[in-house]
Design a protein around this nucleic acid. Structure first.
Length: 442
RNA sequence: UCCCGGGUAGCUCAGCGGCAGAGCGGCUCGCUGUUAACGAGAUGGUCACAGGUUCGAUCCCUGUCCCGGGAGCCA
């Protein structure tokens, strides 16, 4: 018998911790890592994680060979192992099930693991993000993120939207405002990392009617706050023949679906995160809709010196969103603070047909959208007003030359949404490996 | 870029113009139901870096570096 065969002969059937309840009374093997261990002399406890959950394994001196019993001593935190034993329902154990160990095999003894069950600072943990991902809280957050991404795709897929992947290298600024990451691109000069797939989404909408772009986006702004990453994920639906009102209808139905999916499928994770789900249960249609003018009025009534024509700042957004128990839509912003492609309000040329959705509890803007300018001459004039190079936008102008129609869309920031739904105090925990102004590793 | 706060043991922090501290982790010992186990013990330091003031600086001053979150900008 070779090594592998010998090892296999001592194992029960291999299962995952998430399916323990189906194997009560059976002898099975769990492959995983040591989360923590405790000893009380002749009875020893090993908390094993395998990626799907945690299980307490109990090693009783009287029930196992001396070799197995002593093997416990060499196991350090995060050592990898295979543990075999009988599964038993046990109310004292976290998860409700426990293993009575009969066999224990060390795969690799871990060196002294830096992340102990005690508290650590943000810098320390972010420097070890690759290890931090193993902890229960990070599991909960990333599983909620996964659920949100799944719900996003389910929402659009079930409504006949086509997933349209936009390029990441772009020839010029999409919106002309943000600072972009720049890189050399062979003989073609400079390329920029995309800050939005929206313009390509518009081309897709003219081709397929309704599409969504879902991918990473990049902003080289030197923002250093709890709401900013330099690389983040955005989902951007775009629908031909939609108006601003249609756009807002879509956005609120979309948000309702995402939140409902998380509440339905990820309650244990929200509990680990100690999230008060009362706020999330309120996320039902209709969401309140107020105009920018009304928002300014609210700020003035609160005694905030806010000048009409400016964009809402983070504090202003918090003041407005605090008045509601669910996300609030603010529409028709001054066109001077919005992007060149947004259509002006036919009733007031100073306003853009734009909408921002502000999350409650001070989480700020999670959605930004608009009806797009569909008139060729107007769009051309806007390009020039914003000093954008017409040549880089000829293809975009083609969308207005050949069968232009009203259309609208929006972008939702995935990390801000995860942060809000999980109730986190910083977006850096919502993505496996955050990229920020002073963080490029690990 | 600006404003504010911070950097002391592996980690989280306290401290103070006059011998460098605690809790936790790791290590040793004990314990048959632990849940961040518990009890006992030993170990652990370039007080971010460079100048300056002083009899004496981890502490006060100046500069630099790094971190945090806020403004601006944005999802």
């Amino acid at each position: 018998m070779n090594f592998i065969e010998r090892e296999r002969s001592t194992m029960g059937s291999r299962i995952y911790i998430e399916e323990l309840s189906k194997h009560v009374g059976e002898t099975v093997t769990i492959s995983g890592w040591v989360y923590t261990k405790r000893s009380s002399g002749k009875i020893r406890f090993l908390v094993v994680r395998d990626g799907t959950g945690m299980m307490q394994a109990v090693i009783v001196k009287a029930n196992v060979s001396e070799e197995v019993f002593n093997r416990f001593d060499e196991l350090t935190q995060e050592s990898s192992l295979r543990v075999t034993g009988t599964i038993r329902k046990e109310d004292r154990a976290p998860g409700g099930y426990e293993m009575d160990v009969s066999g224990l095999e060390t795969i690799s003894v871990a060196k002294e693991y830096p992340i102990t069950p005690k508290e650590h600072g943000v810098e320390f943990l972010m420097d070890r993000r690759h290890l931090w991902l193993r902890s229960a809280r990070q599991h909960a957050i990333l599983r909620v993120r996964h659920e949100i991404v799944r719900a996003i795709r389910e929402f659009f897929d079930s409504r006949g939207f086509l997933l349209l992947d936009a390029p990441i290298f772009t020839p010029a600024a999409c919106e002309g405002t943000s600072t972009l990451f720049e890189t050399d691109y062979f003989d073609l000069g400079k390329a920029f990392l995309t800050q939005s797939g929206q313009l390509y989404g518009e081309a897709g909408a003219m081709a397929f009617g309704k599409v969504y772009v879902f991918g990473p986006t990049f902003r080289a702004e030197k923002s250093k706050t709890r709401r900013h990453l330099t690389e983040f994920w955005m989902v951007e639906p775009e629908v031909a023949f939609n108006t601003l009102d249609d756009d807002m209808d879509l956005a609120e139905e979309f948000l309702e679906h995402i939140v409902a999916s998380v509440l339905k499928n990820r309650m244990p994770e929200l509990k680990i995160l100690e999230r008060n789900t009362k706020f999330l249960e309120n996320v039902k249609r209709p969401l309140p809709r107020i105009s920018y003018d009304e928002a300014v009025e609210i700020l003035h009534k609160k005694g905030i010196a806010f000048e009409w024509g400016n964009d809402l700042g983070g504090t202003d957004e918090t003041v407005i969103s605090e008045r509601y128990d669910r996300p609030v839509m603010v529409h028709r912003y001054p066109s001077q603070v919005k992007a060149f492609y947004m259509k002006r309000d036919p009733k007031n040329d100073k306003l853009a047909l734009a909408v921002d959705v502000l999350a409650p509890e001070g989480y700020g803007e999670i959605i930004g959208g608009s009806q797009r300018e569909d008139d060729y001459e107007t769009l051309l004039a806007r390009l020039h007003e914003h000093n954008l190079p017409q040549s880089a936008f000829e293809w975009y102008l083609d969308l207005r030359r050949y069968g232009s129609v009203p259309h609208a869309g929006f972008g939702l920031g995935v990390e801000r949404t995860v942060s809000w739904i999980c109730g986190l105090d910083h977006v850096r925990e919502t993505i496996p490996f955050a990229r920020m102004i002073y963080r490029l590793t690990p």
